[in-house]
Structures are given as C-alpha cells and as structure tokens.
Simulated assay, not measured.
Amino acid sequence: MSAAEFKGKTGLVRLWNALGYSRDGLAAAWKNEAAFREEVLLAAIAIPLAFYLGKTGIDRALLIGSIVLILIVEILNSALEAVVDKASPEKHELAKRAKDMGSAAVLLSLLNAAAIWACVLWP
C-alpha cells in the first residue's frame, strides 16, 4: 500500500496505523542507533529516580520531561541522518552541516536535562 492510500483513513483505522508506524520507528531506532539505546538506558535509570527525588508533581514532570525530550531529539536526529544519507550518500558540505546540526540538537537536549535536574534538585 502506498503512503497516499493511508491519507484517506480516519478514526480508529488511522490511529491504529499511526501506532504501528510509531512502533516501527521506535524499533528501528533501537535496532540501528547505539546512541538511542544508551539514552534509553539513561531514561530507565533517571525516570524512576525522578519519581523518588521529585518533591512535587511539577518537579517530577520537569525531571521526566527533560529525559523524554532527549529521546525525542535523538529520534529526530537519527531520522534526519537517514534522510541525508539516502539523499546524498557522497560527502557534501550541506550534508555535513545538517548532520552536525542534528548532533548539536542532541547535545542541547542533554545540557537542558542537566540544567533542569540541577535546578530542581539543588535548592
């Protein structure tokens, strides 16, 4: 089935299809991206810790949200890298720039999480 055939789907069929695509994306990230697997390990440690260390619901939301954001940015970075590799398999300055900027986004998400954890946990 082509992508255009799914565009007309609505309601529960569309939701079901979207969940399948999301599952496939998570599986692809897990299978192909070592950085994603490492960040999932970080999340597996940090999220339970956030429930324990957070004093309020807002504290816990900030701590957990900052970790989930890392995973989101990593998946987007991996998707960007896959598209760049497909579109331009040879070395090119624009391809390098796109990949470097994706990597910078991951770094910023990690620094963001560190800053949030420091602000929440260091009174």
Rank of each mutant, 00 (worst) to 15 (best):
S103C: 01
N112D: 09
I64A: 12
A98Y: 05
S22K: 00
L111Y: 10
I67Y: 05
P89I: 00
L71S: 12
F51W: 15
G20R: 10
T10Y: 03
A27Y: 08
V83A: 06
K55W: 12
L26G: 12
A79P: 01
Y21Q: 15
L41F: 01
A115V: 12
I47T: 09
V40K: 03
S66I: 11
M101Q: 07
E38M: 00
A34S: 06
P89H: 06
A115Y: 07
I67N: 05
A104L: 13
L110P: 03
I45M: 11
R97Q: 02
S88V: 04
I70F: 10
A34K: 11
L108I: 03
A79E: 05
T10H: 05
A44L: 10
L71M: 03
S2V: 05
L69W: 06
A46Y: 05
L15W: 13
L41Y: 00
W30D: 03
L76G: 07
L69M: 13
L111A: 15
N17E: 14
G20W: 11
A114I: 12
A35W: 01
K55L: 14
A43Q: 08
W122L: 11
C119F: 11
S88P: 00
A79S: 06
P123C: 02
F51C: 13
I67C: 12
A18W: 11
K55R: 14
V73F: 08
F6D: 05
A105C: 12
A18R: 11
F51M: 13
A61N: 09
P89G: 03
L12G: 00
D100K: 08
P123V: 06
I45G: 06
V84S: 02
M101S: 07
I45S: 06
L12C: 03
A3G: 13
S103F: 02
N32F: 04
W122G: 01
L110M: 13
A61K: 12
I64D: 08
N32W: 01
E90C: 00
L121Q: 06
R60F: 08
K86R: 03
V83C: 01
G11N: 05
S66Y: 14
A46Q: 07
W117T: 05
V13Y: 04
L108Q: 12
K7A: 15
L63D: 04
G57A: 03
L41D: 10
G57T: 05
S103M: 03
H92T: 06
C119V: 13
D100S: 08
I47P: 04
A43D: 06
A79F: 04
G20P: 10
L63W: 04
E5K: 05
D100L: 04
G65L: 15
W16F: 12
R60G: 08
S66Q: 14
A105P: 04
N77F: 11
K96N: 12
E39H: 14
